[in-house]
Design a protein around this nucleic acid. Structure first.
Lengths: 192, 192
DNA sequence: GTCTATACTGAGATAGAC
DNA sequence: GTCTATCTCAGTATAGAC
């Protein structure tokens, strides 16, 4: 197996495991089992567990960035862009119900660990925030675009947290509907 | 030191440490240092780390229940009760900014660990949910009281998660204002 | 590149003295 | 009740063979 390919598989497996079990609770053995390599082989590709975490965060950043780019490409207007973001909740409701939001739970965990990669993980939130702000500004809400972006983000985080705690997918669907309705009025309404 | 007192101090210290560092990341040594007892002495009071967690969850349940009871006693009407809940966010904004919501972050962590105490921790959410539902029902929103309770809970969770990630206290204040305004209309509005 | 073997550390937990 | 000493185990990480 090429070095590139093995490295990639490690990062992908770690990404999933960190999401499902948390970073600290995931051991090298867990990842090794998933990728079907020996524990020792790890250190040829990464010098430490932290290094794997860095790679995972970078992977998520690249993936999310690409996702946002694609939404912009497919959408006809900024409102549709924001709607794509909102509908991501519904599309991933199975995973969210079980494991929460991948970004939110990682940031929360690294925060408690006071981990060095905290800032980088939080960049994932910033990525969404900046993008949403841009969409709201394009929607004519220039003066409160950042507030609206934060509201959408917080709303999503709350829905993810509760649907996970109560293992409730229907709550996600309900809230996505409410978000949709809210967006429709926000798109028309002027800045307050 | 009496057995009662030492046990209580262990639970209190563990409560704080679990909140600030997370359950898994907190070791016996951490708690021992905080309480100023030896590691070995623990096992006279608790038979395992899980047992301490159980005690911490129970402590939080008792404390929250007492808090809700007091709010009801002090408030003139259900709307004021709900307002007390909302203002808890503002009152604790310093800790929330640093460590997130004590209930939300614990439930999230235990979920990832797939820990046995998961259900008990989630009961903390249920406690709030049931109480809020009761208040909304008393407010005349009987048909959607539970929906509204979930909305307030989710809103709070989202605010806590984002204010923590961005280390932003002002966001809490802003959102508490919006929640207040929302509550005022919800208190008047009929069931949809 | 990948493996096995192993060193090292810190964790939870136990035993028994005081 | 509290202590010290110690056990066991899992985790990260390293060394060196293949």
């Amino acid at each position: 197996m090429g070095i590139r390919q093995t490295r990639e598989e490690i990062v992908k497996a770690a990404d999933q495991l960190f999401y499902r079990q948390g970073y600290e609770h995931t051991s090298f053995s867990d990842i090794a089992d998933a990728v079907q390599i020996s524990r020792g082989n790890f250190y040829y590709h990464f010098k430490s567990k932290d290094a794997i975490l860095d790679a995972v965060i970078e992977l998520r950043q690249v993936e999310r960035q690409e996702m946002l780019r694609q939404w912009e490409q497919e959408a006809g207007d900024p409102e549709e862009c924001i709607r794509s973001f909102i509908h991501m909740l519904a599309a991933n409701r199975g995973n969210i119900k079980r494991y929460g939001c991948p970004v939110g739970t990682l940031c929360a965990e690294l925060g408690k660990l006071n981990h060095a990669a905290q800032a980088e993980a939080n960049q994932l939130f910033t990525l969404f925030r900046t993008w949403l702000r841009k969409q709201f500004a394009a929607l004519g809400r220039r003066s409160d675009a950042d507030d609206l972006a934060m509201q959408v983000l917080a709303w999503s985080q709350g829905v993810a947290a509760l649907s996970c705690a109560f293992r409730d997918e229907k709550f996600i669907k309900k809230e996505v509907k409410r978000l949709d309705a809210w967006l429709a009025t926000a798109a028309q309404g002027d800045s307050p």
